[in-house]
Amino acid sequence: MDFRNTKYGRFMNTRVPPSKRYQPTEYEHAANCATHGLWIIPSILGSTLLYFLSDDHWKATTAWMYGAGLSSLFIMSTMFHTISWKKGHLRMVEQGFHMCDRMVIYFFIAASYAPWLNLRELGPWASQMRWVVWIMACVGATYVFFFHERYKIVELLCYTTMGVLPALVLLSMADRNGVLELSVGGFFYCLGIVFFKSDGLVPFAHAIWHIFVAVGAGIHYYTIWKYLYSTESSQS
């Protein structure tokens, strides 16, 4: 269905070639800012809650790592989309924030796995993933620095690989509680990719992608709280 020929066409720009970045309409700019900006305060409060629920230093450190990654994702995304909307004529500034936005995603993925890799018992080989995920994040960020927006499919494959590979390691956990919820959250991330690649085809496609990210992150946060930090999990 071609939305451009419907009443929704005014909410979206036309599709652009792969070599160029999609430029949202005013409506889409506002939606892109709001769909992640609304989660900044909840992510900070939620991260703080995990910190205060920690009953040892390692849990507290892990809560800080996870919270920093979660909050940074929403903060940097909102900052970039705001700059792109209101200060898009400052190309170098916008480009810098766009690169930071893309880099933060890698560290967000690593931070999302940190509670499970740090606080659950894993096999000898799987336990090495605790530091491997951060090396992957650094490599991904370096790739963005040198090849930002140059090979979009490669970049998407990098994100997907980093999101899936550590999940396979979690299958070695002796305690499998939470795996189902983690899978559901991962499903929302994967489904959201469809909209991430639909800019110019579906109205508010990028904002919809943001919503899928927020839902996936919310499910994963709930799972981390329930199985790793809540009073019931500590007593089990």
Results as ranks from 00 to 15, higher is better:
F146E: 05
V164K: 02
T78V: 04
T161K: 00
I83T: 14
A126V: 08
W131S: 15
W125M: 12
S54H: 11
M129V: 10
W64C: 08
L38E: 10
L171E: 06
N118I: 02
S112H: 08
N32H: 11
V133L: 05
F146H: 05
M162H: 09
A137Y: 09
E121K: 14
M79N: 06
T78S: 13
L73Y: 05
P115M: 08
W58F: 09
S71M: 06
Y106N: 09
N32L: 11
V164N: 05
H148P: 01
Q95E: 15
G123E: 13
S112L: 07
G123R: 10
I83Y: 02
M103H: 11
K152T: 03
A114N: 10
A68P: 01
L70A: 13
T62W: 12
E121Q: 13
E121P: 02
I40S: 07
K87I: 01
I75P: 04
S72F: 12
T160V: 15
G88S: 04
L156T: 01
A34V: 14
P115Q: 09
M129E: 03
I135D: 01
V144L: 01
V139S: 10
L165S: 04
H148Y: 11
S72H: 08
G140N: 04
L119T: 12
L53S: 11
T161D: 00
S84Y: 13
P124A: 12
M162C: 10
S43K: 02
K86C: 07
M129S: 11
Y159Q: 08
H89Q: 03
N118P: 00
C158P: 00
E155N: 03
H98L: 08
G140H: 03
D101A: 04
L156S: 13
H98V: 00
D101W: 07
L90I: 10
W125Y: 13
A63L: 07
A137C: 09
N118D: 01
Y51L: 15
G37H: 12
F108T: 15
F108Q: 12
I41S: 04
A60C: 05
M92V: 02
V154E: 03
C158I: 14
Y143R: 02
M99P: 02
T48H: 04
R91Q: 15
S172W: 02
L45A: 11
R130A: 07
V139N: 12
A110Y: 00
F145N: 03
L119W: 02
K87V: 00
I153M: 08
M129A: 13
Y151D: 05
F146P: 02
H148V: 09
R102K: 07
I135A: 06
E94D: 14
S84C: 08
E155W: 05
A174Y: 14
I40G: 04
V154S: 05
F108A: 15
E121N: 12
S54I: 10
A137V: 09
A114M: 06
F80Y: 15
T48A: 11
D101V: 00
A174F: 10
S43I: 04
T48W: 03
F147Y: 14
P42V: 07
A137I: 09
A68Y: 09
T142V: 08
G46L: 09
